[in-house]
Design a protein around this nucleic acid. Structure first.
Lengths: 113, 113
DNA sequence: TTGACATATATAGATTATCGATATATTATA
DNA sequence: TATAATATATCGATAATCTATATATGTCAA
């Protein structure tokens, strides 16, 4: 099923930080991993990810360094900072609050019992 | 807790259609009901709701009619159409898919077992 | 050696959702 | 009269994401 892009809005920062909790990763890898870990639900585009990563770097949530790859272009790895970890925990809490609230509105429909 | 406004993005259409499943409602009423049903999580603003309602009307998801109130300005009630109901079911399905996928990414962290 | 394709990073411009600010009109209350 | 609550409405700003495009490298087939 196609995911309404407007529905996805706002949580990519959370998901990207979450991926980096497991260890440093480069951009292209994050796109693949997000797709895999979401059972093919999220198809984050490069044009969305790289500006997002630069923003996280500016905020001090991640740091970046280059490493040569066995083949092809060198890869730019991103590392989650202490501040990034704290931001991640805040975002997770907010997501949970939000998702619970949507759930309540969707369940709490007509009073059939 | 303040809800990150970017997190809320995209799902207001779903929530508003859901509210109308119970019966016709006017704008101001929807703002109150959404706040109540979400345990004070959603504070939808008038400046967000009215353009949203006009959009839903244009798409044929709702129809509107005016009724005098006991006091104050006449109220504009919105009614969910058959097409609106179908759109609601699609949006609910998409929300569930999306929320499950986020849940998988957030839970499926490091491989600790 | 040429072209197509996968990997990898990057930016510009467009689209869209939501908000804040503002405007309006009506009624009750101080 | 003025202020607040109710109620609808529009405008401009902000932010997240996408599409399209650009770049650079390496592999593989024709």
């Amino acid at each position: 099923m196609e995911i309404d892009k407007s529905l996805v809005s706002g949580s990519m920062g959370l998901l990207v930080l979450k991926l980096l909790e497991d260890g440093d990763k480069y951009g292209y890898q994050m796109i693949d991993e997000l797709k895999r870990r979401s059972d093919d639900t999220f198809h984050l585009k490069a044009g969305s990810l790289y500006p997002l990563l630069h923003g996280l770097e500016e905020k001090g949530y991640v740091t970046a360094y280059e490493r040569e790859a066995a083949a092809g272009k060198p890869r730019r790895y991103y590392h989650l900072t202490k501040e990034g970890g704290a931001a991640l925990r805040r975002k997770e809490e907010r997501w949970n609050t939000y998702a619970r609230a949507v759930g309540r509105v969707l369940k709490g429909g007509a009073c059939f019992g």
